[in-house]
């Protein structure tokens, strides 16, 4: 569906995307996970043919964005990071205006708009001005709008950033339904739980490069131990604890507010910490996650 080789985006002398390779298959949910400034949006804009690549080759639906932008976009749905809804128009009118850009007949746009409002659970708000909607409703409207052309590929740039947990789950559920209908989804996020929930495969981006790729399970298996023990000490001493356990667990990382110990058995690691005479303020044993993958691959945590 999409393939990139050596894809690069430069703004002046700075490289936002530094020569990345990836390929996205039909029907999958493909994620770009990375912190602020990783180059996710720059990559999405290139895939959406809204911004020309500085270097490298890119194919979207078999076509070349530099030549066939309009044709590619005709079969593409885009949910930009920042909403671009028309605040003065009603919810329904936003869909109607947008559908006309794709040259759908008024009748078809109207039919699809009603169906999509239902899909986005906005039917009761069809006549409201966008200005009056909550953040979650606006995001759902933006998603509905991106679907007006019945695209086979939808690009979603941080679809749930800024939404409360309930609103996020609703969005996830709708995206899951789209996937079941066979729509290919590209999702960027800096939430590891979102990537884990939604993505069949993903790449981890950092500073314009791809530092890891695979399914969420593969990435965790490859880069992280089975279990993780998080320890918070009351009064510093994190470095000393790390020094004491190093060599006796698989790996240890010191973060701003906690120490993470990696190993096959969290409870055994906890017993070790207690055995060394530490009285942690709190501790948590959990399974390895994409958060740990990111930490492992970049040396930094995903959400500061």
């Amino acid at each position: 569906m999409v393939s990139a080789r050596g894809l690069t985006k430069r703004f002046g002398s700075s490289e936002a995307v530094a020569g990345i390779d990836f390929s996205i298959r039909r029907g999958e949910v493909f994620g770009f996970l990375g912190p602020n400034g990783a180059g996710k949006t720059s990559t999405m804009r290139m895939i959406a043919c809204m911004s020309p690549a500085s270097e490298g080759t890119l194919r979207v639906r078999g076509l070349d964005p530099s030549r066939d932008g309009p044709t590619i976009r005709a079969g593409l749905g885009v949910v930009p990071q920042q909403d671009t809804l028309d605040m003065e128009l009603t919810v329904l009118d936003n869909l109607l205006v947008y559908g006309r850009y794709f040259d759908l007949s008024r009748r078809v746009v109207r039919e699809r708009a009603e169906r999509l409002l239902d899909f986005a659970q906005l039917s009761e708000r069809a006549g409201s001005r966008v200005d009056d909607l909550s953040g979650g409703m606006r995001r759902r409207l933006t998603i509905a709008r991106a679907l007006i052309s019945s695209p086979e590929l939808v690009i979603l740039d941080e679809p749930t950033t800024g939404l409360d947990p309930q609103a996020r789950h609703l969005v996830w559920e709708r995206l899951y339904r789209l996937r079941q209908e066979g729509v290919t989804l590209i999702v960027t996020t800096h939430y590891m739980d979102e990537a884990e929930q939604l993505c069949d495969r993903l790449v981890v981006m950092d500073k314009g490069t791809i530092v890891g790729e695979g399914s969420p399970r593969e990435l965790v298996d490859k880069h992280v131990s089975r279990e993780v023990l998080e320890v918070r000490l009351g009064e510093g001493g994190h470095e000393r604890l790390a020094g004491d356990v190093r060599g006796r667990v698989e790996r240890v990382e010191v973060l701003a507010d906690r120490v993470c110990c990696y190993g096959d058995n969290g409870d055994e690691m906890l017993a070790l910490v207690h055995g060394l005479g530490y009285q942690p303020e709190n501790t948590l044993v959990r399974r390895g996650s994409l958060e740990d993958v990111f930490l492992r691959l970049t040396g930094r945590s995903l959400v500061e």
Binding site: G69, R73, P80, T84, Y101, F102
Partner: peptide, 14 residues
């Protein structure tokens, strides 16, 4: 402000 152009540019329009 409204980013109307960006909305248009995500469709076939150039």
């Amino acid at each position: 402000w409204q980013r109307l152009y960006e909305a248009m540019l995500a469709t076939p329009l150039r």
